[in-house]
Nucleic acid binder design. Structure first.
Lengths: 236, 236
DNA sequence: GTCTATACACCGATAGAC
DNA sequence: GTCTATCGGTGTATAGAC
């Protein structure tokens, strides 16, 4: 009799209830994260918020790190959605402007979700190796930026840079991975622009540029505009 | 009689003993930091290492944050010494090579002291506003990089970039602060190269570039070489 | 002044009753 | 699957011995 209740319908219901509780826990954890930051995210506090006892949460997330991993994926997807929407909305416009717009949209997301930004681009959690789950979500932003280069209506040639054969091989594999057809110097320029974008943004988010300039947004716009030019993206 | 012992000599001895205990605690904390990272740095563990009870440590550091602040200053100075030595050692050589060498020395320091790097360039400590003590030590690296530009034997002109009047005013103040005499476009190029350097390094240190290229050092060298050129630093 | 001892309120995690 | 109880750990604070 007990065995007969193990139908797919019942397990389906159970699985759904389980997924709902999991989602509720995750939502509460996201609220805590936004309010207090990842450091202060306590599994017990999350449990209290959803009306459970702390040990019950362990049925849904095997550890605090597991919960954080889910929050990382959630944050990556949130940023990915944000940037994808921006890139889609600017389709057809000049590539240089699209690059700057995408950069500005990343910045606006970061300013709106500072603790999420810190979670994914800040110091990794101690003894924590990002599971494969996070990799796919994590590359969405890079792919969105690359798509702007790919869809550009012609690229101005960039100043040639000496690149060794080993690095050139890595670049070729990278281009195949993201379906981009440019030369090595442009590949380097894209990578450089990418790291510059997040370097400046991370500096701003983490206070390294405090009192550097009066208007952080203006600096960010100028810097990303400059980097768009260095890739060879055209302004019209 | 008790009052007579309050001579400057005695307080001098006391102050010295106090400084020595403080230094011992700080050294133990630095060891813990290097071994386990800032997250896991516990005041109690440090106290055990130096043979004290946790509450006794509070006589020397008013809180865990206070101890972390001292470690931040220590890390900034360690990096500052490292880069200063590199910049001094390359005096007279072509500016582009000096820039790349300085960048490589920053990277080698980061690789040798990953937890110190995370402490100063990673996610800020929760609810922690860097005291003024850390600012002076924190700017040493930037000043070292700027000195390479300042001492360059002529700069190639950089592509002009449109910069608004407000940002130009900030740039002028910045140049006065670091004693650098270049135009606005070059100022932006220096800032961009600076953020690119730390952006790529942070990406590497925090695992964001894992599986991106086979040789991270080669990428770093190529990227910083490219940025040196974008500043107009000459190769001979 | 410096240290010990102790207390408080948390935390992540686990064992085991129901 | 959810609960209570518990363990060993933490930062922080205070009282009091020397």
């Amino acid at each position: 009799m007990a065995a007969s209740s193990r139908s797919t319908t019942v397990t389906g219901v159970r699985a759904r209830a389980r997924a709902e509780v999991r989602a509720a826990i995750l939502a509460a954890a996201a609220d805590r994260l936004a309010a207090d930051g990842a450091d202060a995210l306590s599994l017990r506090a999350v449990a209290r918020d959803v009306g459970m006892v702390s040990s019950a949460v362990y049925r849904y997330f095997s550890s605090r790190d597991d919960l954080l991993t889910a929050l990382i994926v959630r944050a990556y997807d949130s940023l990915g959605d944000h940037v994808d929407a921006c890139v889609r909305a600017t389709a057809g416009r000049p590539a240089a402007a699209r690059w700057v717009d995408a950069a500005m949209s990343i910045r606006s997301w970061a300013l709106a979700h500072p603790n999420d930004y810190a979670l994914i681009y800040g110091t990794p959690i101690r003894g924590y190796a990002a599971p494969d789950d996070t990799v796919e979500s994590g590359t969405r932003v890079s792919r969105a930026l690359v798509s702007i280069v790919r869809e550009a209506d012609g690229l101005d040639p960039v100043a040639p840079v000496a690149i060794g054969p080993a690095l050139a091989a890595s670049f070729a594999a990278l281009r195949a991975e993201v379906d981009l057809d440019v030369d090595d110097s442009t590949t380097l320029a894209v990578l450089t622009a990418w790291t510059q974008l997040f370097g400046l943004l991370t500096f701003e988010m983490f206070g390294q540029t405090r009192n550097l300039v009066a208007d952080d947004e203006a600096l960010f716009r100028a810097a990303t505009t400059s980097m768009a030019a260095s890739i060879g993206l055209r302004t019209e």
